[in-house]
């Protein structure tokens, strides 16, 4: 499977900003804000996540191989995560019920094994479903999926593939049109352009995609850095980690952090203007945007910058976060 020519994703030149009516942008932006607010509220009770670098990378590379849009790969990750969380919840619930009813307890590890065995099938089903939400002419056919699985040594029938899709759909109650941060990024870029922010939107968009890939791939480390910054670099407690789940679901915050980091990479000088516009559009505090973009940037340069400090400098972070706290009280 390696060595073949890597198909390219959709050309970035296909993207065009400033072509949508203002009323549409306004409506979509409002809708995204409301959707985000709801997602943040619902995430408060969530107990775990399923975003590991290898899994996200697999989905991304598979989407790349199948010439899918970036939005499809993000959506596939979102669908897969929610499906896996649902499956894990089912395992926990099933084990609890069996124990309460004193029936013959089926070892929950056996349930876990079942999940393991079907994981690749579920993964490709999630990608296939996400492709069906995108352009109809880019839908991944069953033959393509079966060939891919067969090349990896997984022999499945078409019926099993359809059942797997149906399992995912039923598990998620057929609600798989999940929002992705890319929609927020693109919409904010559009609004930035209309608001007179002198940013090279297309170049920013390309950098945003790379940064968003990185945040998806390094989801836990990036948010761990953000969590540590919010508590002044001390060790977070379990409760703080649980409370922070809602922050992880805040796509608006993620989008402004991505755009700000992208603007910093592209141009120092437009960066301050972009951040100011982002703050005014979303109402997110400047310090929060700065803290998030800093976390993204430090993980973006990663090991390529030897000796560079990876965590937020304590004195800067503390001051910035105190300022945020005071401004939001």
């Amino acid at each position: 499977m390696n060595g073949r020519v890597r198909p390219k994703l959709a050309s970035l030149s296909d993207f065009q900003f400033g072509a949508v009516a203002t009323e549409t942008i306004e409506d979509v932006l409002l809708h995204l804000a409301q959707q985000n607010e709801q997602a943040v509220q619902e995430a408060a009770g969530r107990m775990g996540s399923f975003r590991e670098t290898r899994i996200v990378e697999f989905v991304f590379l598979l989407s790349e191989q199948w010439c899918l849009e970036k939005s499809v790969s993000y959506q596939a990750v979102e669908i897969l995560e929610r499906f896996m969380v649902k499956q894990a919840e089912n395992i926990c619930r099933q084990a609890t019920t069996q124990l309460r009813e004193k029936t013959e307890p089926q070892n929950w590890r056996a349930l876990k094994e079942q999940l393991f065995n079907k994981f690749i099938l579920r993964l490709v089903s999630c990608v296939q479903l996400a492709s069906k939400l995108s352009f109809h002419y880019k839908i991944i056919s069953n033959i393509t999926v079966l060939n891919f699985l067969q090349a990896l040594g997984y022999i499945h029938t078409k019926e099993e593939l359809l059942e797997s899709e149906l399992d995912v759909l039923k598990s998620l109650n057929f609600q798989i049109n999940l929002p992705t941060p890319l929609a927020y990024v693109e919409m904010l870029l559009e609004v930035l352009g209309y608001n007179g922010c002198s940013v090279p939107a297309t170049r920013l968009h390309a950098t945003c995609l790379t940064l968003l890939d990185l945040v998806y791939l390094l989801h836990e480390p990036v948010y761990e850095s953000l969590l540590r910054a919010s508590i002044e670099n001390s060790t977070p407690s379990q409760l703080q980690g649980e409370k922070f789940v809602s922050v992880k679901e805040d796509f608006m915050l993620l989008a402004v952090g991505i755009i700000a980091a992208s603007a910093f990479i592209q141009n120092h000088e437009c960066w301050s203007q972009v951040v100011g516009h982002l703050q005014s559009i979303t109402g997110i505090a400047l310090e929060s945007i700065a803290a998030f973009s800093y976390a993204i940037l430090t993980h973006s340069v990663g090991a390529n910058t030897p000796g560079r400090q990876q965590s937020v400098p304590s004195h800067l972070a503390a001051r910035a976060l105190r300022a945020t706290a005071s401004s939001n009280m």
Partner: peptide, 11 residues
Amino acid sequence: TAFDLLKSIWL
């Protein structure tokens, strides 16, 4: 945001 709220609580 939730991030700001948590920070304000924790700080």
